[in-house]
């Protein structure tokens, strides 16, 4: 699977993610069926940083999982770059995800038995990169992320913010087109949260990588270009982030 980025280089501000009429039902045709997503339509342009907000249970995480193809949709189309992901097989989707989508979770979800650098290099190894090269790249990235002195520590030996930096590193190492964050700062205190958000902003600005973050924190959401509000499995409305407005105004 080719990288979307390369195709997209010519078209600045082109649409990188387009979702039409996306539905997700859990426990389909059972008595306890839950209709989590009820027809989502969403487009995200390359280089955008978008926040999805909404109360608990409105379907934020479900939407994010759909975008990341961590779960099967019930109906609807998701087009990432020019690829309609419905046409991909499971294996194709796996490598597509590996190459184009990075994940950052609220609980960091690092492999507890691997060191920081091992956690970060894993996606490169999965691509078949030489292990020495992968190790060097991972170290470089972690140093960039300010984790140079914690390379060989296991997650349990790291603080929450440090863990999240490692998780960010793991998401970034493949230089994916889209980075998905599910409450990436949910487990962090406010100072650390703002550090992490600044990190996201920097990545978004310098690498032109698209970020989609799920959060229920207004302050976090306001760091983004766009804020999409969800309620009961639908997008209720969307707004531009305050910085975006400011930038535009200026």
């Amino acid at each position: 699977m080719k990288k979307i980025k390369n195709q997209e280089k010519e078209q600045e501000n082109s649409i990188i993610l387009s979702i039409t009429n996306l539905h997700k039902r859990y426990n389909e045709s059972k008595s306890n069926e839950v209709h989590a997503l009820r027809g989502i339509d969403l487009t995200v342009r390359k280089g955008d940083m978008m926040a999805i907000m909404g109360p608990s249970g409105c379907g934020k995480t479900t939407l994010l999982n759909m975008i990341g193809h961590l779960d099967r949709r019930s109906s609807g189309d998701i087009i990432i770059g020019n690829v309609n992901t419905l046409t991909l097989s499971d294996n194709q989707m796996t490598s597509f995800r590996r190459d184009n989508i990075g994940f950052i979770f609220q609980l960091f979800n690092l492999f507890p038995f691997l060191t920081a650098v091992e956690n970060v290099e894993t996606p490169l190894l999965l691509k078949g990169m030489n292990s020495g090269l992968a190790r060097e790249q991972a170290k470089m990235l972690l140093r960039e992320l300010g984790m140079g002195d914690r390379l060989y520590h296991q997650p349990s030996e790291l603080s929450g913010g440090q863990q999240q930096r490692v998780a960010v590193g793991r998401a970034l190492i493949n230089q994916p087109a889209i980075i998905l964050g599910d409450e990436p700062t949910g487990d962090l205190d406010s100072t650390t949260s703002s550090d992490v958000m600044a990190l996201f902003r920097r990545i978004n600005r310098t690498n032109k990588q698209t970020l989609v973050l799920v959060t229920h924190n207004r302050w976090i959401a306001e760091q983004c270009d766009y804020i999409v509000h969800m309620r009961d499995g639908k997008i209720s409305h969307s707004e531009q982030g305050p910085f975006n407005k400011k930038e535009k105004k200026q």
């Binding site: 490598s95 996606p123 493949n174």
Partner: peptide, 16 residues
């Protein structure tokens, strides 16, 4: 299960 989920999320194919 959770670790397997992570593996799949960061791009481990089923076979691996």
């Amino acid at each position: 299960k959770r670790e397997i989920g992570m593996m799949r999320a960061i791009g481990f194919p089923k076979s691996e």
